[in-house]
Design a protein around this nucleic acid. Sequence first.
DNA 1: TCACGATGTGACCCGCCGGTCACCAACTGA
DNA 2: TCAGTTGGTGACCGGCGGGTCACATCGTGA
Lengths: 230, 230
Amino acid sequence: MEHVPAPLLDDAAVGRRDRERLARRRARLDAALAGFGEKGFEGATVDEIAERAEFGKGTLYNYFQGGKDELYLTLFEDVVIGGLHRVVDATLATASVATPADVRSAYCTFVEGLFEHFEAHRPQLMLFMKDGDRMMLDPDKAAFFGGLFERLIDRVAVPLDAAVRAGTLRDLPARPVAHLLMGTVRGFLVADDETRCAAHPRADVSPFTTPGEAASFITTVFFDGLLARP
Amino acid sequence: MEHVPAPLLDDAAVGRRDRERLARRRARLDAALAGFGEKGFEGATVDEIAERAEFGKGTLYNYFQGGKDELYLTLFEDVVIGGLHRVVDATLATASVATPADVRSAYCTFVEGLFEHFEAHRPQLMLFMKDGDRMMLDPDKAAFFGGLFERLIDRVAVPLDAAVRAGTLRDLPARPVAHLLMGTVRGFLVADDETRCAAHPRADVSPFTTPGEAASFITTVFFDGLLARP
DNA sequence: TCACGATGTGACCCGCCGGTCACCAACTGA
DNA sequence: TCAGTTGGTGACCGGCGGGTCACATCGTGA
């Protein structure tokens, strides 16, 4: 494996007017990735990806020596993990955890950000959410994949941990809570996607029409709990 | 698709002393399914499954005309959905929702039951949890699969709905909550499994050593919420 | 013991798909 | 205009794996 960033997507240290060529390539690959999403990693053929991206198959192999795997992992790192970190940057990184309301609203905004990011890149992200677990079956991919995800969880857990220490949150271990939250959002998005896209849609998975409503639902459950308060 | 129950697993309406032969077959198939779990649906070859189950490949095709797909769906219905319904039977079906403590403990027992069921059939269930989403890409499988799951969710939602009506629980829609709970448990189990089995284990996903502790963790988050109470 | 149906089998077939490589085209500098 | 270099291509290859089917084996009843 030993995933080496492909020059194709590496636009740092690149000559001036090559910029736009690189941008076009990126766009074409992103489009190809969307096609990926409909079929899953194993379902999509390299021929098809190349065709959608308007690349020759050989060209793809020029840039991704590691073949289909490296293509997949590169796009994963770029689109999925990169996007998630940007959501963390925008919502959690600078959040105050001084009061319960602060923590609550920081994570509500965070979850809302996740939903919006998802809306904007639905097919690409769906692919990785549905295929992600299968990747873990391969030790090499699992190491790469797991490492990236762990770093994300670390960042999500930071404000939780601070809030627990400050006594704002119940005394629960921060990282498991972060995992639980991310897993829950993921499960919600997958179920919701199936509702919208499946031949036989599931009923009533999500009656929420905006990212804000859905985020508020999850945040309410997580922070306030299901039990009615007097 | 039109999944017709294979006689191989259909032990109703079967002659007296064929019983034990059927039982042996079932056991062999279950063993084969465990092997399935290590590789995933697409990763496991029919040759390998047949070998593990000590069947000839042709014999498998005698019983599962639908081929690998039907084999998969039959085992799914039998092991996964059947097992989950048994957990619901044992914990939620007869639960009282009269007081907050009743609802809380019913679902805590339910989640604990899910964890125990999982412990007992780890490889088989892991297979379906990790592959489940990919199945939804095929409309036929999605219909079969989704229908079974929806009926399960219906049952999980019943006590929630009753409790909401009784004012015991916060006024949230019961089915989405049921989906959220099941998705959360699933996410937790998958992450936990990766911690135990992956080449590079994830740290601190679950510091819990017994099903009871893990169930208590999830139940606390869901019912009491993360926010500290005075 | 033989005949016949039912059950079980694995060698073989064939389509599919990831990966390769010999070739081509476009640009560059002389 | 031509030689050299870089970037791009898709026809082809090889293996892999789902599915088939002609044959073997077993159980049974005459």
